[in-house]
Nucleic acid binder design. Structure first.
Lengths: 179, 179
DNA sequence: TCGCTTAAAGCAAACATTTAGCTTTTAGGA
DNA sequence: TCCTAAAAGCTAAATGTTTGCTTTAAGCGA
């Protein structure tokens, strides 16, 4: 039986908040389960039983943080909408904090569901942009094409080649998928 | 002073071998530093001092395993060389073992150098294929383009969307970058 | 070849984290 | 309101990690 409300929910929220606070205060590397538990007013064994280990907990928190906060802005044309969104996406994801969250999300993710959620967030944003273009009567590529040719190269470089990532690169990718 | 030879080299090799053996025997999840050290005939503190923690050690071993063993095969044309290499690459990387090594390589990699090495391995292979095409007098895209449009989508899907990866997808990516 | 120097490994004890058995609390339903 | 069982608390044992000091041996120069 799943019990999403009541005490379980309070514990979950309190532990997540403790992780966020401690990351901000003392950095992610110094984090330990007993430390998080103490700050959350919870026993370590509760954390171990619910999350397994620190990585899975961090992965949970990371996915929450990677959720987009607002729909992509409307600039009046697909070309500009996609360019602006891509630029913003690259900016957020390639920041030190963004990289750390991406790594955390991938790390403590035995079944790939957290990573899948991250990808779904990006895909949703892309689909909003594309649907808007279609509503305007513009020709638009498929969301798959944008994921493969815009999102994937950015994420690949963030993870494997931490260099040469700037706004110009983002705009070039956006322009090329529309060509 | 770096001491690549002698005892240090023996310890490194013996520890790496212990990791490979134990992964094969008991699985990666059951691995611990004391276990690896015991198998390698070494004290745990040696492992902790040289590698820091289990993740960095696994990352080291993973990068070794991700090194290509042979140059790409020559099939007589760029289209077929690239399609065949892409298919093989996807096949190796998307296998359960491949995924595990990719994750490990990314995980215990504070400065991104191991991930960079993985990317360099793929880039080298791609460059061999492209150079061969140029030598034949064929028109060839840049290695960057192949990384962005073939390698990146594959790695993105492996990490973020573990579905819909098959030989046909590999061949489609290879064909599209040449179009 | 023979010492010298010092990076790296060994050892062992202190320390921290993780696991596991059992008890207590409490959300959700009858 | 009472029952049931999922989830949290508590504690102690097991396990893993860190650290100071000692010992070994690789690389270097005489």
């Amino acid at each position: 039986m799943v019990r999403p409300g009541g005490r379980s929910a309070r514990v979950q929220e309190s532990v997540h908040a403790a992780v966020r606070d401690l990351i901000a205060e003392t950095g992610r590397d110094a984090l330990t389960v007993p430390q998080v538990a103490a700050r959350a007013g919870v026993t370590p064994s509760t954390v171990y039983r619910r999350w397994g280990d620190l990585q899975e907990l961090l992965s949970d928190v990371a996915v929450e943080r990677l959720r987009p906060e607002a729909p992509p802005e409307d600039h009046g044309s697909l070309a500009e909408d996609l360019a602006a969104w891509t630029e913003l996406f690259l900016d957020e994801m390639s920041s030190p904090a963004g990289r750390a969250y991406i790594r955390d999300a991938l790390l403590g993710d035995p079944d790939g569901s957290n990573a899948g959620q991250c990808s779904a967030y990006a895909a949703d944003q892309v689909e909003v942009v594309l649907a808007r273009a279609v509503a305007r009567g513009e020709a638009a590529p498929s969301a798959e094409a944008v994921m493969d040719r815009v999102v994937a190269p950015i994420m690949y470089r963030i993870l494997f080649r931490p260099d040469g990532l700037d706004a110009a690169y983002a705009r070039r990718l956006a322009a090329e998928v529309l060509a």
